[in-house]
Every structure is written in structure tokens, then in C-alpha cells.
């Protein structure tokens, strides 16, 4: 292994999430609900040299393929991430992380006085993408604009 090269091994089947914004690998793990108790190998690499981002994080999940809703969630915290579905050691699919224009049910409005935070009502949060970078989301119900830090805090 040459100095500075990647110190993680290939996975047989599963998902590689590459180009995660540095410092957000653990957030990705958290929003995917990975707690390490399901048995599959999960590899986290932080502050890896990247020609594209300078420094990046990588997460490899053995035995699990992400679905499109999970990919959308990752887009919120790692908009430059690339997702490779691995089957038999080969890249079988490349999924592009793209911020959806409407985000349903993933994040909550930070305004306590917003109806979407009334847990007794049959309501699911809806946000519209206002800006991608820096991330800004507008609440469908109260119209409040949530800033990136308020969004990232929720993961």
C-alpha cells in the first residue's frame, strides 16, 4: 500500500457512498439508521484525500443497497456524494445524488409554531428546495426558510 492510499478493502455486495462532504460520514450513517447491530460490515473513512473535493469521507456498507428515498436523504447532507451499488465486487449501478425539489417527511420545520410540528395532526413535513448551496429549504406550511445549519443539526 502506497503512502496516502485508501486503507479500506473492497466489498462484495452492497453500497459505496463516496465524495461525502468531509465530517459528514457519521451523519450519513445516522440518517441511514445504521447502528452496527445488523451484522454487515460497515466501513467509514474520514478525511481521505480527494482530487475532486480536497478531502472527503467515504462509507461502505456490506449487504445493503440503498433505495431512492435514502439517496434523497443523503443529498441533504452530502450534495456531492456519489453512490455505487456493488454486486460481486463490481459497480453494478451508479446513482446520482440530486437534491429533490420537494422533500417530504425527512426533516422537520424548526419553527415550533408551525402546524407541521403539531404531533396530534395527521401531517407530514413538506419542504421546497430554495437553494442548493448553501442549502436552504422552505416549509410548505409556514413558509419559513431553514438554513443549512438547522437542517444538518437534525441528523
Amino acid at each position: 500500500m502506497s503512502p496516502g492510499s485508501l486503507r479500506v478493502s473492497k466489498i462484495r455486495n452492497g453500497t459505496v457512498i463516496d465524495h461525502i462532504t468531509k465530517g459528514h460520514a457519521l451523519d450519513v450513517i445516522k440518517i441511514l439508521g445504521i447502528n452496527g447491530r445488523s451484522g454487515g460490515t460497515v466501513t467509514i473513512a474520514m478525511n481521505v484525500q480527494s482530487s475532486k473535493l480536497g478531502v472527503k469521507d467515504i462509507v461502505k456498507i456490506e449487504g445493503r443497497e440503498l433505495n431512492s428515498e435514502e439517496v434523497d436523504k443523503i443529498a441533504l447532507i452530502a450534495p456531492h456524494a456519489t453512490i455505487n451499488i456493488i454486486r460481486n465486487f463490481r459497480v453494478a449501478e451508479k446513482l446520482t445524488v440530486k437534491l429533490p425539489s420537494v422533500i417530504r417527511g425527512i426533516v422537520k420545520c424548526i419553527k415550533p409554531s408551525c402546524i407541521s410540528n403539531d404531533s396530534s395532526e395527521p401531517i407530514r413535513s413538506i419542504f421546497y428546495l430554495e437553494e442548493a448551496d448553501p442549502l436552504k429549504l422552505r416549509c410548505h406550511y409556514c413558509n419559513n426558510i431553514m438554513e443549512e445549519k438547522d437542517i444538518l443539526q437534525q441528523f
Binding site: 419553527k111 409554531s113 408551525c114 402546524i115 395532526e121 406550511y141 409556514c142 419559513n144
Partner: peptide
Amino acid sequence: LEGSARFAAEYAQVPVINAGSGAE
């Protein structure tokens, strides 16, 4: 609550007029 009129309008079949939704 803010957004209450929009929410009510999504459930109601008859028209809803917002006569004040929190500070919104």
C-alpha cells in the same frame, strides 16, 4: 399555528379563508 390555514384547506372540500394563521 403558522401554516394552519394551508393544512385545513388540504383537508376541507369547501373553501377555507385564512383569518390569521399565527404570526404568518
